[in-house]
Nucleic acid binder design. Structure first.
Lengths: 355, 355
DNA sequence: CTGTTAGCGCCTTCAG
DNA sequence: CTGAAGGCGCTAACAG
């Protein structure tokens, strides 16, 4: 069969270096099948053989090749794909934490990618994840561009859950924060306090949450029969710098607002910075001892320093970790649970108002 | 060969549902090999066939099975495993962002797990990642327990990079912050300002960074020939709550500190909370108009609100995203670059002091 | 209780 | 330029 004089089965080193069931089998002097059975925790293996296998595994430092394993029919990859717009945003870090926690509990690992709000990147990430045969996907959708890569048809049966944002025209499981109610209640509070010129700082309306929070803001005005002051509406700030800039502009208007509703933590932080800067400016300019009127600020999203803000701040609080957990739980209900064929569900997590 | 009357090759649906090269080949009326060649971007394929294949891929929604692909000799998984102690900590979120950015640039995806500072979980994560044939590992080591699972021998040639923390006795590539210098300079500044009773708030000494930052604190005292006030040293706070508690205790001492050095952002936040609470308490208790002495606070790690802290705060700043990038770059130098056989390198990233 | 056979999806090697 | 054969590591199904 072979020109090698040695009649024994020759164990030549493989390229990859990692030992295989074969290697373990040789070392333990059993068949590969027995190794496989031991690794799978099968009951019907003679204790002695089991022990020989376990010893060989330890000696060789063997790790079962999960990729090869997932190739067998009926086997799963044990992988869940997660697409986040920006993991450096503490809110999404919490989201990932919740997802990972539940995934680990279900014996799965997560593949994570940042989409940077870029639909092209998002599409690539999803395609790659599908190529790695993830069992499910959790996506914070960027919300721009055609979402055909997220349609169930394109996913060929791989369950998808949207977290934090939904996509119009894509009917899949979704976990949201109750944006509209949160924005409505916060704005209503400001109106009830007598504010009539309330600034709005938020995302582009192409961002799902931005749209919904703006809707709550509007609805509160309608309910109170107060007109939204359009000059005080600033949309499109995605980061702290632009939010600070927008707030600074609003403060410089001839007729500035008496209160601000900011639709996310980026805008809240920017608003705080702008207000502090303006106060310092005023303190420097005027020395008549008259304190400048304090700006009333209400923000969507909480953050660690909300209660220590130098500007009095109320927030619409909600729990990112819990949102992540819920998204993952919905996914695993379809994967492991009985609910594989339920129609798509949308869950809205409650918010809590913190004065 | 088969009892099926239909002489054509029968394309029965496979269990997994996902189409294979076979399916694409049938659809495009070519051999699987041609499909493979097209997908690999091979030059020598007749344009017509190429187009037929591409059409079939689109029609079927085909995604190449990367797990099967990685089985072939010489193929890599395209995966990097990342173990973080707690992704909900904004610092580590930044770290992950940096890692992911570089990994994506190198065409790799990241598998991420939280170890929760638990060496058992960390070990499981690493074992699982090895089973998935990650090409490399980036680990923020928990630093407790025997690190034999991180020894190069146990990793069988899979490169490992430590990020933010090292492990004694494990010689691998490491990216650190210059903890000792940062703590030394910060403490020296406080001493230069005349403070002689400086509190220290930090991690357990089993945490690598905690140990190093404490060393810097001590060395600064030695250099200034000032004794460390041992009563003011509080080690072991891993979260904001315990840090706040520790700071509160220190403030209640008969002879409280005039300054505080906190060794990480959790402890800084806790210290701020305790100081604010104490000030409120004092304002409420005493009404003699004498302002309570302001506490001087210097913290390791920056955070978003550092410059808006209600307590005057200086920080030792450093860049988590950049640390993540550097760790990933070191890894890919071994993977893709020429430096596969370099001896282990340790990089210390500089800190910057922000008054 | 244990071993043999075969094939998951892919691509390198070799023929045509 | 294209196709056929074989094997990567693993484990169901089927002997023994």
């Amino acid at each position: 069969m072979s020109a090698i004089p040695d009649g024994q089965a020759e164990r030549r080193p493989r390229a990859s270096g990692a030992p295989t069931v074969q290697d373990v089998a040789v070392q333990a002097n059993v068949s590969p099948m027995t190794v496989s059975r031991v690794l799978s925790g099968a009951k019907h293996v003679r204790p002695e053989l089991r022990e020989r296998v376990e010893r060989a595994v330890a000696e060789l430092g063997y790790h079962r090749n999960e990729n090869a394993r997932s190739l067998r029919p009926g086997q799963q990859s044990g992988l869940v794909g997660v697409t986040i717009t920006n993991i450096a945003n503490p809110y999404y870090a919490g989201l990932q934490r919740g997802i990972e926690e539940v995934a680990a509990r279900h014996g799965r690992r997560i593949l994570v990618g940042n989409s940077n709000e870029d639909p092209v990147l998002e599409r690539q990430l999803v395609a790659d994840f599908l190529g790695r045969r993830v069992e499910g996907l959790i996506v914070v959708p960027s919300g721009i561009g055609e979402p055909d890569h997220l349609q169930p048809a394109a996913l060929r049966g791989v369950p998808l859950v949207f977290a934090s944002r939904a996509v119009d025209g894509v009917a899949v499981d979704t976990v949201l924060v109750d944006d509209v109610t949160g924005a409505f209640e916060a704005t209503s509070t400001l109106l009830r306090e007598g504010h009539r010129r309330i600034a709005f700082l938020g995302n582009r309306l192409s961002v799902f949450t931005g749209r919904r929070r703006f809707r709550g803001f509007r609805q509160a005005h309608q309910s109170a029969r107060v007109a939204v002051v359009e000059d005080l509406v600033r949309l499109g700030q995605q980061d702290v710098e632009s939010a600070q800039q927008a707030m600074a502009e609003v403060l410089e208007l001839a007729d500035p607002p008496t209160a601000v509703f900011s639709a996310n933590n980026r805008n809240t932080v920017g608003a705080i910075r702008a207000i502090v800067a303006a106060q310092r400016q005023q303190a420097w300019t005027r020395s008549d001892g008259v304190p400048p009127p304090q700006m009333r600020l209400y923000g969507f999203d909480s953050f660690e320093f909300a209660d220590l803000s130098p500007v009095p701040l109320s927030v619409v609080d909600h729990d990112a970790v819990e949102l992540g957990r819920r998204a993952a739980e919905m996914l695993f209900e379809r994967l492991d649970g009985t609910g594989a064929n339920l129609p798509p569900r949308v869950v809205e997590l409650p918010v809590s108002l913190r004065a």
